[in-house]
């Protein structure tokens, strides 16, 4: 319940935060704190320096950016869930945000903090992968944009470099596509046992393209390439068969609540449900 002691800094700019991050090997960034603080309270994380991003102005927003919607890294799940702009331009992310944790968690937790933590059962990664989102990271050497597909690299790990922090997430507008996020909640933690995000484009009664992001199954969220390919040019009747390949080639994780085999099975079931819902959403 009680974190170990640490030094604390609350920089007022991203540049200061980056400088602080480089000043210590045992520094951690504090965004909403809903991944990090629970770990610190159980003393599973004991950073020497905590850099609180909460005092940096201008990191919380949802705004139009050309064909994309840009979100500040410190935007809370609640703001994402309730955003009218996302509802009209790219509703999938809001839909995923609404299924994160509970009201209190959504009021504090941030998208930047969540994806940097890269919990294998988190909800956003599935949506960001399906959307082909981009993550904007800034470090001492400047800013770079990381495609979501290249961002999640393993269990609690990303391709962020040390000294980098996330400033923005960009998701494309999904006008013309149907989207859905179907989630099997862990009854205790509320995390995804399996979560499937789908972006489906239809043309003359057949699936033109499908992008499917899956969380909860493997050590990090992934794009279900085999299922996506199997869905192209298929009518509704072929969806179940195609979605049975949702976890093809995936090294699944298992625990006392859900074995690897069961998670792979659920991936197929929830993939089908997500794709069907996405198609219905479009119709």
């Amino acid at each position: 319940m009680i974190p170990a002691n640490f030094d604390y800094q609350a920089p007022s700019s991203v540049e200061q935060a980056i400088a602080l991050l480089e000043s210590s090997h045992e520094a951690k960034l504090l965004a909403g704190g809903h991944s990090l603080l629970p770990a610190m309270k159980l003393r599973l994380a004991e950073p020497a320096l905590l850099i609180d991003l909460g005092r940096i102005p201008g990191l919380s927003y949802v705004r139009e950016a050309g064909a994309q919607v840009a979100l500040g890294a410190m935007t809370t799940h609640a703001a994402i869930a309730e955003s009218p702009l996302l509802a009209s331009r790219s509703p999938l992310l809001s839909r995923a945000a609404r299924q994160i944790g509970d009201v209190q968690v959504r009021n504090r937790g941030t998208i930047g903090g969540s994806i940097a933590h890269a919990d294998p059962a988190a909800d956003y990664p599935a949506a960001l992968l399906a959307l082909d989102a981009e993550i904007v990271a800034r470090g001492r050497k400047g800013e770079r944009t990381i495609p979501a597909r290249e961002f999640f690299s393993g269990l609690f790990s990303t391709t962020l470099l040390s000294g980098e922090l996330i400033t923005e997430i960009r998701v494309p507008a999904t006008t013309g596509a149907g989207t859905s996020y179907a989630k099997f909640h862990h009854p205790a933690s509320g995390f995804a046992v399996v979560g499937v995000a789908a972006v489906v484009k239809m043309a003359s009664g057949k699936i033109q393209s499908a992008a499917i992001g899956i969380t909860g199954v493997a050590d990090h969220a992934y794009r279900a390439g085999a299922a996506e390919r199997a869905l192209v040019n298929q009518p509704a009747s072929a969806i179940a068969g195609a979605c049975s390949r949702a976890a093809e080639g995936v090294d699944a994780l298992g625990d006392h609540f859900a074995s690897a085999e069961y998670r792979k099975h659920l991936a197929a079931v929830y993939c089908r449900r997500a794709v069907q819902e996405a198609m219905a959403a479009k119709a």
């Binding site: 159980l42 205790a188 006392h256 609540f257």
Partner: peptide, 11 residues
């Protein structure tokens, strides 16, 4: 004890 917190013990 595998179910040592309310993250694992399903209330």
């Amino acid at each position: 004890l595998v179910t040592g917190t309310l993250m694992d013990y399903s209330m």
